[in-house]
């Protein structure tokens, strides 16, 4: 069984984000594997293992030929990667990203399953996985908290407001996974060394047969028209607990007629 995992490489979320002159997220410097995608990588490795063979291929779209995040996922055990990097991609929106990633999936060849996270950490539109599926003409099973493969079918537990639904479809299909679907492994030293020599196929928009008009600002057809700081909420009263402070809370609730 061959699985493709979409992995986004993002600025470290632990450092405060900032905007570039064109009002997009600053993506200079080293990018790392989006933690949300580590779950997909682990899931793919487990599924291929269970199926008794096959390959896990990573696909990523990122600026400046960034491979740091890909190397992390390769160190976990993925076999190879396709990286789409091209100056024409600056400003690409979710739909454009899906157009690129769907082409990258096709380039990966014989694929049974595509895994992505339900939403990325930095852009979190949460639309890319079903957009990829629609581009490919495949079913999408979204918000999976459990994934199983058998008899040419994929079955998931799909998170809902009320609990979860059991949903299935035949392969090939796209699945988006939630954080916690599996416990991602830490790359071993051996894995990290091996990752250095695993193949990364670096391609451009043209290589994928897409026009530059499909992607970038032109393809995005949206314009950031205003950026301003949010009004701050004022702090109220702060008191040290002296053993009686609970009464202040009770009184506060009473004043609001909550109790």
């Amino acid at each position: 069984m061959n699985v493709v995992v979409c992995v986004k490489q993002i600025p470290d979320p632990a450092t405060p984000g900032s905007l570039d002159s064109d009002n997009t997220l600053k993506r200079e410097g080293k990018l790392i594997l989006d933690e949300s995608d580590s779950f997909g990588v682990e899931m793919a490795l487990q599924l291929v293992d269970k199926a008794g063979g096959g390959e896990v291929t990573l696909v990523s779209m990122a600026p400046n030929n960034e491979v740091s995040g890909l190397r992390t996922a390769l160190a976990m055990g993925a076999h190879k990667a396709i990286l789409v990097s091209d100056d024409a991609l600056a400003g690409t929106d979710a739909l454009g990203t899906a157009k690129v990633l769907a082409k990258a999936v096709e380039r990966a060849g014989d694929v049974d399953l595509v895994i992505a996270a339900t939403e990325s950490t930095d852009g979190y539109t949460g639309t890319v996985p079903p957009q990829i599926a629609e581009r490919l003409g495949w079913p999408s099973l979204t918000y999976a908290r459990k994934v199983e493969i058998g008899d040419g079918k994929v079955t998931i537990e799909r998170q809902t407001e009320a609990g979860y639904d059991v949903v299935d479809a035949s392969l090939p299909a796209v699945v988006s996974v939630t954080a916690g679907v599996v416990e991602p492994r830490y790359p071993s030293f051996k894995g990290i060394m091996a990752a250095k020599n695993k193949p990364v196929d670096q391609v451009t928009v043209g290589d994928l047969g897409l026009s530059p008009d499909d992607v970038g600002w032109k393809g995005a057809r949206q314009e950031i028209t205003k950026v301003e700081p949010a009004p701050a909420r004022q702090a109220g009263e702060k008191i040290e607990d002296d053993g009686e402070s609970f009464q202040r809370i009770v009184q506060y609730l009473e004043n609001l007629k909550i109790i």
Binding site: A94, A98, V128, T160
Partner: peptide, 23 residues
């Protein structure tokens, strides 16, 4: 921006070839 809402807008955006603004 719900579970089904996201599924619907995402697929529709491809069918119509329109961008989406989210969140």
């Amino acid at each position: 921006q719900s579970y089904d809402g996201r599924d619907a807008i995402a697929r529709l955006s491809v069918k119509l070839d329109r961008p989406v603004l989210t969140n």
